[in-house]
Design a protein around this nucleic acid. Structure first.
Lengths: 352, 352
DNA sequence: CTGTTAGCGCTTTCAG
DNA sequence: CTGAAAGCGCTAACAG
């Protein structure tokens, strides 16, 4: 309530019988030499009063917030794991991470969060490939605050310092070829428009993976947004006719799981009739029945790279590990984008 | 980088040829009457310079941050949904919500976040029933910032203004009695220590639900933390002997799903041999095979209550809806705790 | 309607 | 080793 009751550095100073500068010094453990006795007195006063430093004042004065912002579409699954991991990483550098969710790719909310973070003068920003237009983003960010994107394609270097992307295209090639090798007579990609390019990457890989087999193999790109989940499966079955097995590759595990549930319902057997591959390696791809083949997301590597890069941009000294990591990966950057491989985890859903 | 390059209110003032007070006035759309011309000039200057208000300075001066803090154990599942929902609710009141994850009930990290939020002088705090000791929390919070807890039991009113809890005990009674009514010869609770009391609530309800049947029915309280997931199922089967079906009630859907996967692996049939009930109503309880009976969490109601109550504490005027909600529920508060019912969603896993 | 001014709480030279 | 004083960017009386 009455915030004004919170003790300030001035109260501490007078309580300890020293000047405010001294109090500030002991709080910040500066290199300034101080008498043990002074330190003791000040610290005692701090506890006695229950003093708690006001970060807003500190930041204003320092012109630095030691705070980073993260914007994700939602807290679940991969994004949640990403946030949690990144939070820990930046903590090692003494930074805090404020996480905001854009309520599922809602451009307006995303804008609002971005603007807020900027007004708060965060030292750096991390965001998934944003839903909003690049133009408005550019306007927002301007110069100043470093921004790094994860899983976003085609962002100009003037606005995004780096994009740390998972190689969905490559993974998709692998998925399709796995289907082909296991004798699938027909392969279907079940996608989901999300404006981030992640879907496009998968489609691109899917088609590339098909290669020469494209002509001899029934294949299709379906969109759950249009057809609904049941409609999608129906369409896949219809397109495939008598061809068996059908390889169905989905945007993510959640979709794969729903398809699987529907297969059970319709008496379609997995993997006899349908081979299924998802993406994300969620708990439920491992624990479903049958277990679903999926791709594991190297979240840890991704956040390590994001954190290290951002710290470097901000001018924070890097520890050996981070420096080595950057040294290893940065040379591979192409057009401000870095690609990280995914590992396919083969499970029952693709074992004939 | 060079934060000092960001334009300030002073730059805007001189650019527009007015005083800084005037600029401040137009920015804050105060009730102060102003000439249209002045407003226009200032706004033009703002865009021209790309001015963005410094929230830290604003807050410092206002002695108010219009910011709320939320601490959750992690971003996944229920907690993630809670965060997202609360974020939207408080937004309607003009507040921002900064979300921090305590890396799975880690008391130390939780403390750090709490302290940080307090240093940032947030106007209010919401947290799940905290893992840390009540004592240290008390010390942390002291007076001043209102704190509301969700799913936390036994917190003293001096430190927590309100606890908005889901009635896990009641739900557990329902689960057990459902088992009993469907002819389960043996009922097992599979719990998970989490220090929040949520497990205790379930245990309490489980035992209460058993009632007189306790003597005639094989029953047990197992803990995955001790036995591991496989060990837990083995133990449940061992304890039950030939009794069929066995009712297994788990702490949450994730656990239920893992048990289910294990049952498939061992040729234990659900629901013929084992009836399964989870908690959370996650996607994968609905889409698993067979689908798992679960309890839906009324996240929306919970966050509405949290938001409304907090706003009231802060002294923000309530809209009709919020006021009505509070009026309806507050009378039911007992010892600073409010209980919200859960809905059981019956699915195949409990249909013989 | 607009401008002056005194803070908000803390950091940081720079003297002493 | 300690203290005085000048900001950091903005708000909020209070005059004019």
């Amino acid at each position: 309530m009455n915030k004004s009751k919170q003790p300030t550095i001035i109260d501490v100073a007078s309580e300890a019988g020293v000047s405010i500068a001294t109090v500030s010094n002991v709080i910040n453990r500066r290199k300034v030499p101080m008498a043990q006795e002074t330190i003791r007195k000040v610290e005692a006063a701090i506890v006695r009063l229950g003093y708690r430093r006001n970060v807003m004042a500190t930041n204003l004065s320092r012109r630095r917030s030691y705070e980073l912002g993260l914007i994700i579409p939602h807290f679940g699954g991969y994004y949640g794991r990403f946030a949690e991991s990144l939070e820990q990483k930046v903590h090692r550098f003494g930074y805090h991470l404020s996480v905001f969710s854009a309520a599922g790719m809602d451009a307006e909310i995303e804008q609002r969060h971005l603007e807020h973070l900027l007004q708060r003068r965060v030292d750096g920003l991390v965001s998934h490939g944003l839903a909003m237009s690049m133009q408005s983003t550019q306007q927002l960010v301007g110069v100043g605050t470093p921004l790094v994107i994860f899983n976003g394609w085609g962002w100009p270097g003037e606005i995004v310092q780096l994009a740390v992307n998972l190689d969905f295209a490559k993974a998709s090639v692998e998925a399709v070829q796995y289907f082909l090798r296991s004798g699938c007579q027909s392969v279907i990609y079940v996608g989901k428009r999300n404006g981030m390019g992640a879907n496009d990457q998968r489609i691109q890989g899917f088609l590339a993976g098909l290669g020469d087999s494209a002509e001899s193999t029934v294949h299709a790109l379906l969109d759950v947004g249009e057809l609904g989940i049941a409609g999608t499966l129906d369409e896949a079955l219809r397109l495939s006719g008598e061809s068996r097995p059908i390889g169905i590759y989905t945007f993510n595990d959640a979709l794969a799981l729903e398809i699987l549930a529907l297969c059970h319902e319709r008496g379609v057997h997995v993997p006899e009739d349908v081979h299924l591959i998802g993406m994300d390696n969620e708990l439920y791809s491992r624990a479903s029945y049958p277990a679903i083949t999926s791709f594991d997301m190297p979240v840890d590597l991704q956040t390590s790279l994001v954190a290290a890069f951002l710290m470097k941009q901000i001018g924070e000294p890097l520890d050996e590990e981070s420096a080595a990591l950057l040294e290893e990966h940065l040379p591979r950057v192409q057009g401000h984008e870095l690609l990280i491989d995914l590992d396919m985890i083969v499970r029952k859903s693709t074992m004939a």
